[in-house]
Design a protein around this nucleic acid. Sequence first.
DNA 1: ATGAAAGCGCTAACAA
DNA 2: TTGTTAGCGCTTTCAT
Lengths: 337, 337
Amino acid sequence: MRKKVTLKQLAKELNLSISTVSKSLKNDSEISQKTINRVHELANFYNYKPNALAVSLKSNKTNTIGVLLPEILNHFYAKVLFGIEQEASQNGYKIVTCITNESYKKEVEYVEMLNYSSVDGFILALSKETQMLNKLDHLKDLKRDNVPLIMFDRVSTEVDCDKVIVDDKDASKTAVQHLIKTGCRKIAIISTIFDLSVGRLRLEGAHEEVARNEGVSLIELPIKDIELEEKDIESFLKNNEIDAVLGLDETAAAVAINMANKLGYKIPKDISVIGFTDGILSKHSYPKLTTVSQHAEDLGSRAARILLDRLSNTEETSYKTSTEIVKTSLILRDSTN
Amino acid sequence: MRKKVTLKQLAKELNLSISTVSKSLKNDSEISQKTINRVHELANFYNYKPNALAVSLKSNKTNTIGVLLPEILNHFYAKVLFGIEQEASQNGYKIVTCITNESYKKEVEYVEMLNYSSVDGFILALSKETQMLNKLDHLKDLKRDNVPLIMFDRVSTEVDCDKVIVDDKDASKTAVQHLIKTGCRKIAIISTIFDLSVGRLRLEGAHEEVARNEGVSLIELPIKDIELEEKDIESFLKNNEIDAVLGLDETAAAVAINMANKLGYKIPKDISVIGFTDGILSKHSYPKLTTVSQHAEDLGSRAARILLDRLSNTEETSYKTSTEIVKTSLILRDSTN
DNA sequence: ATGAAAGCGCTAACAA
DNA sequence: TTGTTAGCGCTTTCAT
């Protein structure tokens, strides 16, 4: 194992002390130009790079942020990750990504593992299981240890930290409003996430909007595993005289649109469809899906920016936490009138 | 900033030496059971965890692997990442994920940044730009530094390292063969990746298979940006008497299927469609897409396994590198006869 | 059974 | 201008 070159070796070879070499590398003004040049030359020759571990240990900073995602095969989280990555890497930070796979246990493990000086701060969306168990001590511990945490999307009011959330309730109001405005009267809501905070908010918004409008009704179809229950959606569509579907997640809308196609309905003439998450499925469905964009990338980079901010203000040991709300927008495509 | 508790503090509070505490925590047999108990008790009380940085610096092991992906908004890479993550986390490794965004510069930066003791090894797929420039010194340097590297999917023969690749040529042969077998005679190939190694291989395979069959012809449509050129695909389909489309990437196939729908073609009666990458788009297109599965998750976990293997055999300073080939399979769905 | 000390690679206050 | 030293938190060898 050819070892990477260290200050020590450079110092030895140059007949200088380690500290002189260290300072030279930083072009410290107390070192003579001549020495600085010699040092740089040899350092270049060996392609010297400081050992990141040692620097971190010394400085108590890792320039790394931990990102915990419930899923990665979900376009929304992938986009958020992309946004975080962009912002972080522009500022010299690297990210370590952990996928909790909706498991509470994994979430706890990851937080603990990274909290011991592997990362300077966290960005996290709660796993489904964590949200259902409502066990949040692992996150409260971060606060106690004074490690900055930014929660996004799936957050909890019980954890006092900065948050970036999507205005989900408002989003589904707008979506429903658009359906009503374009003539729909019987709206179906299909969702796999009725039991998540975001799912509940979206549902609430829809109900509120429907309540404000005479003669419009809502009917719900909860789904456990969308792959297995396509048939249910199909028969649901067939047996209810629906003229609109609001899919609370992207897949639900995509499946609905395909089932409607299959049943021979014309979209949007017979049935309008709106989905959430302006992901890849929405752009490539047929017809293209009108959808609520949550501006996931933007959300990611905002979360990263807040974190970087916290990290650069190390003095303030206690601060007021903030909650940023990302406004959604309804992207009109071909699945609505 | 409430500092995390260290061995030193435990030692002080227990009136023991640091080394005794350290050993106790590992239940070293030279320490008396009584002391061990005392130490554990206090450690638990403070929720002591060793500082990962210090351990790594000492042991020269970080238990972290660096994963470099050209893209994350691409289902194939997201699945590979998922596979890597599973395998890694099961073995106590964490991963730091970097997204090169198809840029050579970013790829080099990330490799250099991580190579200075932040990670024990790398798993990487070349960025588009790197592959086109064919500048690979940053990767050859890893070999020189004896840092294990596993390349996957987009690999280069010029870098001597373990590789996991997909049998792309064979895959497109099988796909074309299936089209021919089901009666197609004029096959269009649509692709955004003609200039990547994998794209070329897929193309070659298709040509070879067509050549073996009397009366079957191939016509190619290269695409730069699929979002912008849907119209091109549409008119291409309209103006050529095609009875099959092979999309060399998932999006190409998805767009083709939608354009065919739009033009009123019946799928698969009028036109058959096959895509690559069994991703989310394939499952949720209408009709569902027959597709080449590259077993991305499996590929990811295989790559991780190879890397972990290399990492556990630290003695062998030089070894024969291997190339694993992941067999693809054609998943028959509703877009072919 | 316990502790002292060196060392991983680096930085920085202080000394020369 | 250069060097010595201590220390970040931990492991481990070698005393005691």
